[in-house]
C-alpha cells in the first residue's frame, strides 16, 4: 500500500512541477491537461490514504471539513429546530426585516444574526437569475420575487436585492439612496434588537449592530461596550432626516420613469444596459447625465 502511495506522491510532485512550468510559460492547454492528471492522482492518493487509515481508527476522516472546527459557513447547516427554510425564503425574510434594498453580504449577515439562517454568499449570486427565469416562464406565478434594485438608468443595480412586492419608489436607487438604505437597514436591525432583548444577547447580533453603529455619527460612545439599540436607531433616524427629502424626490421621479418606460419584466429585473448603450451610441448622444437627469440615457427605450 505505501509503495503505491510513494509512487503516487512522486507522480503528484512531477505533475505539480509540470503544471507550474506550463503556467509560467503561459501554456494553458498543457497546464489544463496536466492539471487534470494531477487531480486524478490526488484523488487516488486521498482515496488510498483514507482506505489505509480507515480500519479501526477514525484518523482517515481527520481532514474532512466537517471534523475541523469549522469554516463558519460550512458547519452550521440548518436553522434551529430542524425547520427547513429555502434559501429564497431566508433571503425574503431578511429583506422584509430590513425593508430596503441590500447587498447579499448584509442579507446573509442579518439572516444569520437575527433569523438564525445560514446563507452562503455563493447561494445568492445565482438567485436573481433564477427568479427572472421563473418570472419569464410563468409571470406572477409566485407570491413574490427576489429582484433587482434599479439604477438611475433603470438598469439593474449591481449587487442589490429587493422584493417584488415593495413599491417601486423603494426599489429604485438615486444618488442618496445607498446611504438612506443603509440607515434604514441600521434602524431596522436596531429596532428588531430593541424589541427583543433575548435576541440582543446573541454575540452575532451585537457584532452586526456594532459594525453598523460605528459608521453612524452619534450612534456609539467611542468603543465602550455594546451599542444601545435605541441610541443606534435614534442616530440613524437623525441622519436619515437630513437626506430623506431629496432622496424621496429622486426616487419618485425615477419610479415615475420606470412605470412609464419599462415593461413588467424590466420593472422587476431591470432594463438591459447593453440596449441603453446601443441607443445612446446610435443617437450620437454623449452621456452627460447623471442622477435625476438621466432621461437621455433611457429615452425611447420601448
Amino acid at each position: 500500500m505505501s509503495d503505491r502511495l510513494d509512487e503516487l506522491e512522486r507522480r503528484i510532485d512531477g505533475l505539480r512541477a509540470g503544471v507550474r512550468r506550463a503556467m509560467r510559460a503561459k501554456d494553458p492547454a498543457t497546464a489544463r491537461g496536466l492539471r487534470a492528471e494531477l487531480r486524478a492522482a490526488e484523488r487516488a492518493w486521498d482515496a488510498l490514504v483514507t482506505e489505509d487509515a480507515a480500519p479501526g481508527t477514525a484518523a482517515g476522516t481527520d481532514g474532512a471539513p466537517a471534523a475541523v472546527p469549522g469554516p463558519r459557513t460550512g458547519g452550521r447547516g440548518r436553522p434551529r429546530g430542524g425547520r427547513l427554510v429555502t434559501v429564497r425564503e431566508q433571503v425574503h425574510q431578511a429583506l422584509t426585516l430590513l425593508g430596503a434594498p441590500a447587498q447579499p453580504r448584509l442579507v446573509a449577515a442579518v439572516s444569520e444574526a437575527l433569523l438564525d439562517g445560514a446563507l452562503r454568499g455563493a447561494q445568492l449570486t445565482s438567485l436573481r437569475r433564477d427568479e427572472e427565469r421563473s418570472f419569464v416562464s410563468s409571470p406572477y406565478g409566485r407570491p413574490y420575487y427576489l429582484c433587482a434594485a434599479l439604477t438611475d438608468r433603470l438598469s439593474p443595480a449591481r449587487g442589490l436585492l429587493t422584493v417584488s412586492t415593495w413599491p417601486l419608489e423603494r426599489r429604485v436607487v438615486g444618488p442618496l439612496s445607498p446611504r438612506v438604505d443603509f440607515l434604514t437597514c441600521a434602524m431596522a436591525v436596531a429596532r428588531h434588537l430593541g424589541a427583543d432583548p433575548v435576541a440582543a444577547l446573541d454575540p452575532r447580533a451585537l457584532r452586526l449592530l456594532a459594525r453598523m453603529a460605528r459608521n453612524i455619527p452619534g450612534a456609539t460612545d467611542a468603543d465602550l461596550g455594546p451599542p444601545d439599540p435605541d441610541r443606534v436607531a435614534g442616530a440613524a433616524a437623525h441622519e436619515l432626516a437630513v437626506h430623506a427629502g431629496r432622496d424621496t424626490r429622486d426616487r419618485a421621479e425615477l419610479a415615475g420613469r420606470a412605470t412609464s418606460q419599462l415593461d413588467d419584466r424590466a420593472r422587476l429585473f431591470g432594463a438591459s444596459t447593453l440596449i441603453t448603450v446601443a441607443r445612446d451610441t446610435v443617437a450620437g448622444d454623449t452621456v452627460t447625465t447623471s442622477g435625476t437627469a438621466g432621461g437621455t440615457a433611457t429615452r425611447g427605450r420601448r
Binding site: M23, E42, W45, D46, D62, G63, A64
Partner: peptide
C-alpha cells in the same frame, strides 16, 4: 505565488488536512 495557485489553493479547496500538510 505559483505554489499558492497550483498546489495550496486546490488543497485547501479539497479540505484534506493531509494534502495541505504535505
Amino acid at each position: 505565488p505559483g505554489f499558492d495557485a497550483e498546489v495550496l489553493a486546490p488543497a485547501i479547496e479539497s479540505g484534506s488536512a493531509e494534502r495541505i500538510t504535505e
